[in-house]
Computed example of a mutant assay.
Amino acid sequence: MEFTDYHVRLAAYALLVDESDRVLLAWWNGEGHSEPEWSLPGGGVEFEESIRDAMVREVFEETGYHVRPGPLLTDDFFTARGRSFDGWMRSQRFVFDATITGGELGTTEVGGSTDHAAWVPLAELEGQRRSSIVDVALAARAVREEQA
């Protein structure tokens, strides 16, 4: 398929794991078309926004924390049929390491796709309904730690 034959969605996320082995997750409400699930804080990149700036903005909106972007941890994509348009889409997802620089836990967006955020122990993720981006990011983190 040629690039002019499908839509592209860019999304940027942060992987934040604290010293107690808890990961910061955002509860995505499904927006009326999907089952709610845990996701990494992050989301869509606006048209005139850099990927890193989008990650910083999205993390604040979904968690209440200000962050400083670190290095790109991984990128990933999936393809699907569009829900709001006829045709195919490619969702390109970028996951960054990040450092919390301020703020406090609490979702700041109103009427958005995130209902709340929480620090979830990694040991309790098994069996939790979660987006594939959580597993993609944690697998990339494990590879990085093995290489260190």
Rank of each mutant, 00 (worst) to 15 (best):
R144P: 03
L40C: 01
S34F: 07
S84P: 00
A137E: 06
Q92W: 02
E126K: 13
S113R: 14
Q128M: 11
E19Y: 02
M89N: 09
R130I: 01
G127I: 00
E46Q: 05
E35P: 14
R68W: 01
S131F: 00
G64F: 02
I51Q: 03
L24S: 07
V134T: 07
S34T: 10
L10W: 05
Q128L: 12
L73W: 06
F60G: 08
V136K: 08
R68C: 05
H33G: 10
L122R: 11
D97H: 14
Y13E: 09
V136E: 05
R90Q: 04
S113A: 14
S91R: 12
S34W: 08
G106W: 07
E46H: 09
G102E: 00
E146I: 03
E109N: 14
L72R: 14
A148F: 08
Y6N: 01
E49R: 15
T74N: 06
E61H: 13
L122G: 03
T63C: 09
D18Y: 07
T99C: 05
D18N: 15
Q128W: 00
H66A: 10
V136R: 12
S20T: 00
A26W: 01
R144E: 05
D53T: 10
T114P: 14
Q92E: 12
A26M: 10
S132H: 13
E126S: 14
D135I: 01
G106P: 07
I133T: 08
R83W: 07
T79F: 00
L40W: 00
P69N: 10
F85T: 02
L16P: 12
L72N: 07
E46R: 14
L73Q: 08
V56T: 15
A137H: 03
A12D: 05
R144A: 12
V143P: 05
D75K: 03
T79E: 11
P121Q: 09
V120A: 02
V110K: 15
V59R: 06
H7Q: 10
Q147F: 02
D18W: 04
R144F: 01
A139E: 12
L40S: 01
S34E: 15
E146W: 05
D135T: 04
L15P: 08
E124L: 13
G112Q: 12
F77S: 15
L125W: 05
S50L: 09
S131A: 13
T63P: 06
T101Y: 05
G64K: 06
M89P: 07
R57G: 13
G111C: 14
G102H: 05
E48N: 15
G43F: 00
F3Y: 00
G103F: 03
W38N: 04
A26T: 05
L105D: 07
W38Y: 15
E48Y: 12
D135Y: 01
T101W: 02
F78K: 08
Q147G: 11
F3T: 07
S20F: 06
L73E: 03
E2D: 12
E58I: 04
E109K: 14
L72F: 02
I100T: 09
